[in-house]
Design a protein around this nucleic acid. Structure first.
Lengths: 254, 254
DNA sequence: TGACGCGAAAGATATCATCTTTAATATCTT
DNA sequence: AAGATATTAAAGATGATATCTTTCGCGTCA
């Protein structure tokens, strides 16, 4: 483990005949990406320092620097400064990716309705799989979040926060990291900034549904868990779409 | 439209008191991101040239360049060289994002099983929404892809390609761009490299299911469309998980 | 434990190369 | 001769290189 990839060991490197990449740094980025997909470059592998990469590809340090910036932004490498520093292949960071998605969805002008629909797909499957795979640790975490939410029934901001955490914990209980990453992204986009219509009555209702959901997960009733989550998300979606017609990325909850 | 954001007009700029960003370029990136989320910076807005940004933030061109590289990698800006060049806020590019997710999932070592489960969630909702929202244009595109797949029953590689396109077209017919982006990402990760078990008989069966699905979408039967897609994807998943236990990102299809 | 030094990225400055737009100029056509 | 078109020149911007100083992390040695 933590070896050096051959590509980054060889003394010389020739650009491919049909180098589609326009800039030199893009060619370096492409090389790394290829090695990644090919599986010859794995997390925690050492890529080299700026000077080394520059020498390897026969370019200046700035070009290597540009490539590092790009790869860093993509979450592919981590860069350490100082002795024994340099670039190393990173372990994937779901949060970094969630950020990127949030920006992309914002730029594309995705509507709240689309986001909530996608969220429904993710959350329903999460509930279903959680009922099948939840460990006792998952369940106790869910119960803990329930208690926390119950203690903040009055504070709508705090209640919303712990509700979001609850939904994320359900996804984690599914044992599927893709679902967790997707849900994080979508929650981030539709992050609540104000909670106008979250009355104590509504909060109590939400808390009841959440409790019922944990019971179904513990009972391993996947079908019912899925159905309950579906109704729950549909309700949220209906409320939010009614509140604000399509525009704006405010207010998500639960 | 295409205005210049105030932040990038002012003559000076002071870093926030609690500048969490370690590097100067990261501070610039953070500024742009904030402006994006705040909505004061919109697609096709002009950000400025390297020299302008450098002057604005009181740093060297290298720093501005680093920030540009990062924002470019995130798909936030497009950079043009030459007179009247510089950085401009990009329209979101779903493919770029799909790439990023693919890399992240690869780095995190996500199993095929997890990917296929997530794909099931996305595709089922896509089928359901397609039945509700598909336009005549969507339907004719789906029919076209069916015909194309039928003509390539013998060529397993070509058949797989058009099958993937079919599934993507279903997502597009749903009218939900989030689903399209998610499906693209997942397909990219589990891209087929070899198709060992795709016999003509299996291909014919898949084609039949796809045809039935289009019929259900045309009939606006959302519930049935969802159920059919669910069974379909479950079948695919079962076959692929059986083929290779967990490891490796080869072979997806349909 | 602390101070020192080394290695590496972070950042600055200057310079050249390359590309793109714009405009001025030259040439061709009618 | 006037207008349309092709050519060329200049300006402005990124791409790329070289060299330098500063800052930061790590290991070593006292």
């Amino acid at each position: 483990m933590a070896t050096v990839h051959p590509l980054f060991k060889d003394e010389k490197w020739r650009p491919p005949a049909s180098s589609g990449a326009a800039t030199l740094s893009a060619q370096i980025v492409a090389s790394v990406r290829e090695a990644l997909f090919e599986g010859t470059l794995k997390p925690s592998d050492f890529l080299g320092t700026e000077k080394e990469i520059a020498a390897r590809f026969g370019v200046s340090r700035i070009v290597a620097r540009d490539a590092f910036r790009t790869l860093q932004a993509l979450g592919v490498i981590e860069i350490k400064v100082g002795a024994k520093g340099g670039a190393r292949v990173a372990r994937g960071d779901p949060r970094l990716f969630a950020d990127a998605l949030a920006i992309q969805l914002g730029l594309a002008g995705i509507s709240v309705r689309e986001i909530l629909d996608a969220q429904r797909a993710v959350e329903c499957l999460a509930a279903e799989l959680a009922a099948e795979h939840a460990t006792t640790a998952d369940l106790s975490k869910l119960r803990g979040l329930l208690a926390q939410a119950a203690s903040t029934l009055g504070d709508s901001a705090a209640f919303t926060r712990s509700s979001l955490e609850f939904h994320l914990a359900v996804a984690e209980a599914s044992g599927n990291r893709v679902l967790v990453a997707q849900l994080q992204s979508l929650q981030y986009v539709s992050w609540p900034q104000r909670n106008r219509t979250l009355t104590r009555t509504v909060a109590k209702h939400i808390l009841d549904v959440h409790g019922e959901l944990v019971d179904l997960i513990e009972a391993r009733d996947a079908k019912a868990a899925r159905q309950l989550m579906d109704d729950h998300v549909k309700m949220i979606r209906a409320r939010r779409v009614a509140e604000r017609g399509e525009r704006g990325h405010d207010e998500a909850c639960c």
